[in-house]
Design a protein around this nucleic acid. Structure first.
Lengths: 121, 121
DNA sequence: GCCTATACTATCATAAAGGATAGCATGATG
DNA sequence: CATCATGCTATCCTTTATGATAGTATAGGC
């Protein structure tokens, strides 16, 4: 059996932090959730907003976010196919976390804006 | 050359979020930072607070956090050795992120408290 | 002299994360 | 009939993350 995701929850003092981090653990997940804050998006729209992700990984991480209950996936029976992704109420409850991350990133992005050029802290 | 950590910063709209997430990307990092919110800790104290981490990984992630400027490491020339770890001002500025993660985790830990038992969202 | 403590280091191993590339079914369009 | 769009899937591959285990230097305590 593959290691269970989130299996590390052991209710130590850091547990709550760990639980939250575990849900956004995946290279593209936090970006996907952040983009969905603005509203429902289709697969292709997400891909245009995050061009560096491969279709395989985008699908993979959308499926995991759905399995974790953070987003909803709605398929429209038409051609070409249309699939809408949106934050679920649980996902929406992550907004304070995502906005805290953004606020921190906005304030400090200059420290890491270029590879190899980390400013002295 | 190994891939640079944080090399994925490309200043897309999610960039700021990505930057912040990249700094806590590592199985134990968010827990370490969370524990250090309470104040300076020695290596062994951190290990007692996070018993599941191996010494190798604890050292590895402490070194990365230090390299990223989030924590400071102070060596005392004595025997047995004593090394203190503390949040740097930059690390301290992550407190809102860590507290947002904790608040979210506290509110929702029940959803993921046990492996294999994800409540319907 | 042996044991203990501390904060690691060294080495090997396993598992997983993520990427690269090519391809698919269906209808619409020209 | 060829091309296009969409949202993927399949397969193989590379890289990285993490773990398991054993070991280390130095002084102090018994």
């Amino acid at each position: 059996m593959a290691k269970l995701r989130h299996s590390r929850f052991d209710c130590a003092p850091g547990c709550a932090v760990e639980a939250a981090v575990g849900l956004i653990d995946g290279k593209w997940k936090s970006i996907i959730l952040y983009q969905l804050l603005k509203g429902t998006l289709r697969f292709g729209e997400i891909h245009r907003l995050i061009p560096n992700v491969t279709p395989r990984m985008l699908t993979n991480q959308l499926r995991e976010l759905e399995a974790d209950g953070l987003i909803t996936r709605t398929v429209f029976a038409q051609v070409p196919p249309r699939v809408d992704y949106a934050l679920s109420p649980l996902g929406r409850s992550m907004e304070p976390v995502l906005m805290a991350l953004k606020a921190w990133g906005d304030a400090h992005i200059g420290l890491y804006g270029k590879p190899h050029e980390v400013a002295g802290a």
